[in-house]
Nucleic acid binder design. Sequence first.
DNA 1: CGAAACGTTGAACTGGGTCAAGCTGTGTGG
DNA 2: CCACACAGCTTGACCCAGTTCAACGTTTCG
Lengths: 207, 207
Amino acid sequence: MAPPAGTRDMPAAGERRTFAAGDELFAEGQPADFFYKVVSGTVRTSKLLSDARRQIDSFHLQGDIFGFESTSDYSFTAEAVEDTTVAVFRRSCFRGLAHDQPAFADQLMSAMVASLRRARDHMLLLGRKTPHEKIAMFLLDIAGRLQKGDRFDLPMRRTDIADHLGLTKETVSRTLTQMERDGLIKLEAIGRTIFLSDKASLRRLNA
Amino acid sequence: MAPPAGTRDMPAAGERRTFAAGDELFAEGQPADFFYKVVSGTVRTSKLLSDARRQIDSFHLQGDIFGFESTSDYSFTAEAVEDTTVAVFRRSCFRGLAHDQPAFADQLMSAMVASLRRARDHMLLLGRKTPHEKIAMFLLDIAGRLQKGDRFDLPMRRTDIADHLGLTKETVSRTLTQMERDGLIKLEAIGRTIFLSDKASLRRLNA
DNA sequence: CGAAACGTTGAACTGGGTCAAGCTGTGTGG
DNA sequence: CCACACAGCTTGACCCAGTTCAACGTTTCG
């Protein structure tokens, strides 16, 4: 996913920046000058309503590219969920990129298509799934992307999970507790560490 | 949005196909050989769960491009909501497109970025908005895209609207009736024709 | 004209939200 | 080092918005 090395006209390619947990990478309405690739850590991208209701459309883990915009301003906010390092790319290479950097443009297109597929899956989840199905899908998704096997630390808090899945933090908590009672998972270390003890049953909670 | 006229290597560019209301353009799991642009009519793209719960991620109106995939198979289904004509493009021009057709690739990228932005808006709607807010946003969105002013025909049925907004058809119906009582809209011709009599109040139901 | 599909309305139920309290670990300052 | 404050998480009780189930009206089409 990195741009081809040694190519010309690739301004600021891969310059690194580090953010502490809670820091804002960019906010809705700001000029969309850059897009990003996660080097390490976790980023959440979200939108707010005027009364502070929030929807986190995606968590971006190591290797994920985000921040695509074609208009001048970001239409969403990005914040570091934990201490995070990202690679920054100037968006100026967006217009005309297909001409200047066809190989990189292809990669960007693939990343966008992948984002779109994930977005569609998430719309199905938000619109039509039960809390148990939402949590099961979320845990399996994160586990698959973290690549750490069946025991892993959730980088985000309950409120973030809730705002991602269209639930309240209370429902997230209750559902996790219920799943532990049912032997599907184990909660360790104040609920931040998760062990998937019955992946088959979790998978059965999906389509 | 049309591909540059007279360019070489643009296989099957813009070939037209017509579908009757209810017809399937393609189904989830089929080889993703084409992508599409709506010439006239309306297309819905959706995903199904095993028990027939359905999420319509988007309605595609005149001029909209849809059906982007980078993997081999479609991950969603597309059906004609009403009698519809589309322009068909071979997906083979996807890989390497950036090299062969940079201008068209740029347009495709813009279309994808726009789809992503719409998807994020819709996730906020699905995860965090009330039925009244959902319907208000939906009506304003459709009105804006149809470009027919404040009186227009909804191309889709109540069930489609419900499966798009994460509601039941009964709640859609009740909310529309309520909005008519409140003087926000008028329902004409069996509820298929809508007149937005108080756009300001409808807009107030958003962010 | 009849049947079937779509839309509306009503009544009752319930899942998940809301509100509130308690719990747990962590960090801070005396 | 301990006491305290605070933030995050869990748990409980209550309640209501929106679903479910059912009936009825309306339009369309064969």
